[in-house]
Design a protein around this nucleic acid. Structure first.
Lengths: 137, 137
DNA sequence: CTTGACCCTATAGTAGCTTCATGGTGTTGG
DNA sequence: CCAACACCATGAAGCTACTATAGGGTCAAG
């Protein structure tokens, strides 16, 4: 076996924090590694690959639950991958929705910002006024 | 005094949950209201206005810390409102950044999705393959 | 006098980690 | 030989902005 990597080395290889690795183990995304005499976790190549898979998914903003599901399919090569496609479609939908929302938000914020273009007394600040419904007029 | 509204009525007026109102009080965004004989919180018009202000800010995705700051300026009419403008500029920056990020993300996800257009065995799924760096080729 | 709608407090849970407190392991230098 | 230092271990708390839950009190109507 090539289970010889300490957690710090693995963390450096996949550029994530040691605590995050332990957290993934605790959450059941990473199998419990072997231990050294001194009770240090010892990882092998398959752990590193699995971690990279997880981090890649996370960099795509997937939830850990979704990553768990993807790992299940990764672990079952004969299973039909339809749900993987569906998961991705749904995730794309979420991201697209969020973009629309944020664009609307940005427009609102810029509009608000346009109301007070120079510093003045708060009582005259149009931004604060605009944020206070019922105090309009 | 017009301190006569119970928390449920206020919640209905500003369309937020009762628990949220208590939470804001606990977090120091809403002054502690008076109490009835039966120990019920009693709110007046100024509480409702403040709550609407808070909810408006939150609908613009501001953090509670930022809302706290804005409330400070709302409470100090003679203060110069420059920091308000700055806060808003920064917030707009965050939102704009996030939009850029999410657009990149969406493109990546669509690209990934394009790799597996029909359900098949997981071991042949290009999506799972693409998510597994080191297992390429 | 009981039912039901409403209110109270305190505590725990959510997501995905990060930080902290406290202590063991292992290697190197004086 | 031992101290210093880097590294590792565990368990618990902290972060945001709430939401939910447990276990109880208040109040008006029937």
């Amino acid at each position: 076996m090539s289970n010889c990597l300490k957690i710090g080395e693995v963390a450096r290889m996949v550029t994530c924090r040691i605590e995050t690795i332990r957290y993934y183990e605790q959450q059941g995304l990473l199998p419990t590694p072997g231990r050294s005499e001194g009770n240090y976790r010892l990882y092998g190549r398959e752990h590193v690959e699995r971690l990279r898979f997880i981090r890649h998914c996370r960099s795509l903003d997937m939830t850990l639950d979704n990553v768990k599901l993807l790992l299940k399919f990764r672990d079952a090569p004969e299973e039909n991958c339809g749900p993987v496609d569906a998961l991705l479609d749904e995730h794309i939908g979420h991201v697209a929705d969020r973009i629309v929302q944020l664009k609307l938000l940005e427009a609102q914020l810029r509009d608000l910002r346009g109301q007070c273009l120079s510093a003045k007394a708060s009582k005259d600040c149009r931004i604060l006024q605009a944020l206070s419904p019922g105090k309009e007029r």
